[in-house]
Amino acid sequence: SRSSATDDFCYVFVVELERGPIGLGMGLIDGLHTPLCSPGIYIRTLIEDSPAAADGRLSIGDRILAVNGTSLIGADYQSAVDLIRSGGKKLRFLVAKSDMEIAKKI
């Protein structure tokens, strides 16, 4: 049931990606380095025809909450990137869809 008119609806989904020759095809950025000024791993770029883009659900501004079951909330940015890079060939991402306002800032 809709609790409030402007419900802070947060759409979260799981994406399984397999690393391709160029990796997953995502460029990540720390939310602190964007006009958002709030920590978090956000998708800054998506390379066409890459595993990440091919999935179709990922878009710029989305936030990565966890990788392979490991939460990135509160983790520092570099260790999160290292975790993704060392996550092996198949990676499971928990992603939070961002609305237009956030996407624009990223």
């Binding site: 997953l24 995502m26 990540l28 950025i29 380095h33 990137v81 993704i84």
Partner: peptide
């Protein structure tokens, strides 16, 4: 600013 920004993006 663009140069600085692209520098902070990590490709995975």
């Amino acid at each position: 600013r663009q140069a600085r920004e692209t520098q902070q993006v990590s490709d995975v």
